[in-house]
Simulated assay, not measured.
Amino acid sequence: MFTIDTHTHIIPKNLPDFSKKFGYGEFITLDHHAQGRAWMVQGNKRFREITDNCWDPLVRIEEMKQHKADMQVICTIPVMFSYWAKAKDCLEVSQFLNDDIATTVNNHPDKFIGLATVPMQDASLAIKELERCMKNGYKGVQIGSNVNDLNLSEPQFDEFFAACEKLNAAILVHPWQMMGQEHMAKYWLPWLVGMPAEISRAICSMIFGGVFEKYKNLKVCFAHGGGSFLPTISRIEHGWDCRPDLVAIDNPINPKEYLGKFWVDSHVCDHKMLQYIIDLVGADKVVQGSDYPFPLGEAVPGELVRTAPLSNENKEIIMGSAAKTWLSL
């Protein structure tokens, strides 16, 4: 079956020393310390070790053959968002990353689809970069679950969402800068607990803030199966119902009414949970997404869906056609 892996990350093989160039900050650099291996370095600390499948499209294509993936949607690693930086500097970083993705897509148009990164701390610059990328063949944009601790429902992002709707740009919302991470560094809890909570935060913010009401044609996909939002939707609805004075102050519509109006990826690590999210949002709103090439992603991208007790029709929808709709292919 035709397969599009909608959630994969990529980085240029070589990064400028943006901290040195701009004179501040802890921008990521790469230390290629061994053949096919590099440390992502943040300031003077090692952030993560990556291998050549994170930057070499030919290695990725070979692994795609093994994983039976026909295409990958590629976007930057969230730590590269750099929303904390000065907006004009973040724009320069974004342009560098986006140009590298564009080169990969242009060299292998039958294998890769690009999502841009933009300086979300400045809506006008974010729109400018989004427009540039969409004109150059991108299908959408990846954004963080918050922007410097601001929720996506804040009015300053309205102009950006309006531009996404106008440009028919798909949006992938990915967790980053997890709330409370400074209080739970042990046991990898920011990734295990914080990431699911961040995605629920983003969905709730966009629902309760009326973003989906203002921009009814917005095409949003939330990573990691929608995080903890779908497993706790009845609690969220109960809060909306019992304390509307706190929850429904900007949007009176029941949050369950939005099920099926946005996409989530399939990376939920469990067949029962996969069936659960299908039951809630519909197979046509679930897209294959692996978080390749990182360890917390699927060990074999696509295996969860392929081995699930689903109908062949639903598997074909999740593996390919739902993504085509989200990305307007």
Rank of each mutant, 00 (worst) to 15 (best):
T3D: 00
P12Y: 05
K13D: 06
P16H: 08
D17T: 06
F22T: 05
Y24Q: 07
G25E: 05
G25F: 11
D31I: 03
A34R: 12
G36H: 03
V41A: 03
R46H: 03
R48D: 00
E49W: 12
W55P: 13
D56E: 13
R60H: 08
E62P: 08
M64F: 11
H67D: 15
D70M: 10
S82E: 10
V93W: 05
F96W: 09
N98C: 10
D99H: 14
D100F: 14
T103P: 00
I113C: 04
A126N: 12
I127D: 10
E129T: 08
E129V: 05
L130K: 03
Q142N: 04
N148C: 12
D149V: 07
L150S: 08
L152P: 09
S153F: 06
F160C: 09
A163Q: 12
E165W: 06
Q177L: 12
G180W: 11
M184I: 13
K186D: 15
L189F: 13
A202Q: 04
G209A: 01
E213S: 14
N217T: 03
A223F: 10
T232K: 08
I233Q: 01
C242A: 09
P244T: 07
N254V: 03
K261Y: 04
K261C: 05
D270Y: 02
Q275K: 15
Y276F: 15
V281A: 06
V286Q: 04
V287C: 15
S290E: 04
E298C: 03
E303V: 07
L310M: 06
K315F: 07
E316G: 11
A323W: 06
